[in-house]
Every structure is written in C-alpha cells, then in structure tokens.
C-alpha cells in the first residue's frame, strides 16, 4: 500500500486536489452564502498593497512622461532639468488634484440631479483573472458598503458590489460575463436583460423580436431586480442582431461609463460621503 502511494503520489495528489476543488466549487454554487472568511481575509490583506501599487504605477507613468524623454541630454543642463522635472512633477500632481476635484464635483452634480445619494470610492485594483471583469475599490463594510449596492459614474452604470471586507470591496462590472442587469430601451420602453460579454461591451438579451429597437437607442435600468434603481443610464445600442427565427432579438450595447479606465466611482445607496479621498 505504502509502495503504491509512493509510486503514484503525484497522480493521487492531483486527484485529491482536483476533487477537493470541484467539491468547493460545487458547494459554493449550490449554497451561495456570500463571502468566505478566506476571501475576506485575502481582500483585506491585499487592498493596502494594491493601493500602494496603483500609486507607484501612477507615479512611474508621470515620471515616464515628464522625465525619461530628457534622458541623455548634456551634463551641464542636469541641474536645470531636475528643477524642470520637479516643477513638472508638481504641475502633474496639481493637475491630478484638479482633475479629481472636477470628478468629485461631477459626482455632487450627479447626486443632486438624480437624487441617488452615495459614497465616492477610488479604484485601487482590478481582477487578477483575465476572464473576470471586476474592480477593487477603497471602501468597505466600515464605510457602509454592502453586497448588491449599485456602482455608477456620472456617465452611467458601472456594476454592483459583490464582496466587501473592512476597507475595500469588489465590484462586478456590467461587462463581466456573470453580470445581468434588467434594463429598458429608453425610447420604446422595451424590456430586456443586459449581459456582459467579458470584453468592453454588453449584449441585450430576451428582447422580444416585435419590440422596437434601433441603433443609437439609450438603455437605462428598469429597476426590476431590486438592485439597480430605475432610470440609471447604462449604454447605447450599437448593433442589432436580429434573426429570421426565434422569439427574441439581440443587440450589442456600448456602456456609457468608461469601464476600461475607471478611477473613481460612486456607490449609491450608502450614506453620502465624498470626503476622505
């Protein structure tokens, strides 16, 4: 027996690990009880590092733009160039601050226009799985975030909170393949379900083939699922995929929110709070 185990230890380990993993997956799918302690701990531990990494990456990008192209110039100009770089860096920082202040103003304006009170949050990370479209924001349970809260920008819907830890949360984007949002075509009031396509676009599904939908139509949330309030702009129809058979027609939708370059978002349904950025 011992010889058998030793001889086949690699295969046995593979079988044990794979079966254990499949059981873990199966259990989660059958009993979706929310976030496990393991997941919450991993998110809590990594959030400060992700925040730091984002800051470093931002600084490196700024330096790349402001400094590296000067590399290799004459030695006697080094001091002057360092001064220039320092000033440029300060200008860059101030521009960034002005830009952020502008975005927060937009959030304020959006809240007063729509009546959706919420809390601004900064994007500090994205999903490490290329097939999953989620982001990590720097607000968590301690700040009042909880599962299923909608996340928006003044441009449109971004997604919803799916996991929270103390000071950070994971948000599933509307372009994620698991995302489902009940929506309306703003012009014709036709109902459909918006599903993510995994890349930068979404698809309208379960749209009755007799309904009127046109390229350029604006898609808004219908408020039916109880997660997203009615009337949030989601995207624009870019292509109709209609066949000669079947009950439904389909359409491609380009999200209005800048899904691939999100920096700050508004989590609605929480106590208002734009401070602490």
């Amino acid at each position: 027996m011992r010889d058998f185990i030793m001889r086949h230890r690699e295969g046995l380990l593979l079988v044990i690990l794979v079966i254990s993993s499949l059981l873990i997956i199966s259990r989660q799918i059958q009993h979706p009880t929310g976030v496990s302690y393991f997941q919450r701990s991993v998110i809590a531990v990594t959030a400060p590092f992700q925040n730091g990494f984002r800051a470093v990456v931002g600084a490196v990008r700024g330096v790349w733009g402001d400094y590296l192209y000067l590399f290799g110039t004459r030695a006697e100009n080094i001091r002057l160039k360092e001064e220039i770089n320092q000033l440029r860096s300060e200008v860059q920082t101030m521009r960034e601050e002005i830009y952020r202040a502008g975005r927060l103003e937009e959030f304020f304006a959006y809240q007063s226009e729509t009546g959706f009170a919420g809390m601004a949050a900064r994007v500090i990370g994205e999903s490490p799985d290329p097939w999953s479209r989620t982001i990590v924001v720097n607000r968590g349970q301690q700040e009042g975030l909880k599962r299923n809260l909608p996340v928006v920008t003044p441009d449109g819907l971004v997604g919803s909170v799916i996991q929270t830890s103390d000071h950070s949360s994971i948000v599933r984007l509307i372009v994620d393949r698991s995302s489902r949002v009940p929506v309306l075509i703003s012009r014709s009031r036709a109902r459909a379900i918006l599903e993510g396509e995994g890349s930068g676009t979404c698809q309208l599904k379960y749209l009755d083939r007799t309904e009127d939908v046109q390229k350029g139509d604006v898609v808004i949330t219908s408020g039916l699922a109880g997660i997203y309030p009615r009337g949030i702009e989601v995207g624009t129809v870019t292509q109709i995929l209609s066949r000669n058979y079947g009950l439904y027609q389909y359409a491609k939708v380009m999200p209005k929110a800048p899904i691939n370059r999100l920096e700050d978002v508004l989590v609605i349904g929480t106590e208002p709070g734009l401070e602490g950025q």
């Binding site: 794979v18 997956i25 998110i43 999903s127 799916i162």
Partner: peptide, 30 residues
C-alpha cells in the same frame, strides 16, 4: 508536485481577489 502546490496556492488567491467562484482558477492551475 511543486507545480501543483504552487498552482493551488496562486489559483485560489487569484479566485479570492477576483471575486469569482473560489476554486475555478485553483483547479485549472493545479
């Protein structure tokens, strides 16, 4: 063996960070 152990650790951590079903990346990396 080191490959499977490394795959399990990094795959499960990746699942936890991506907010998806825990084990999908775990099992594929094992």
């Amino acid at each position: 063996i080191p490959g499977m152990m490394a795959g399990a650790v990094i795959g499960y951590l990746q699942d936890a960070l991506s907010g998806g079903v825990l084990g999908i990346n775990g099992v594929s990396k094992i």
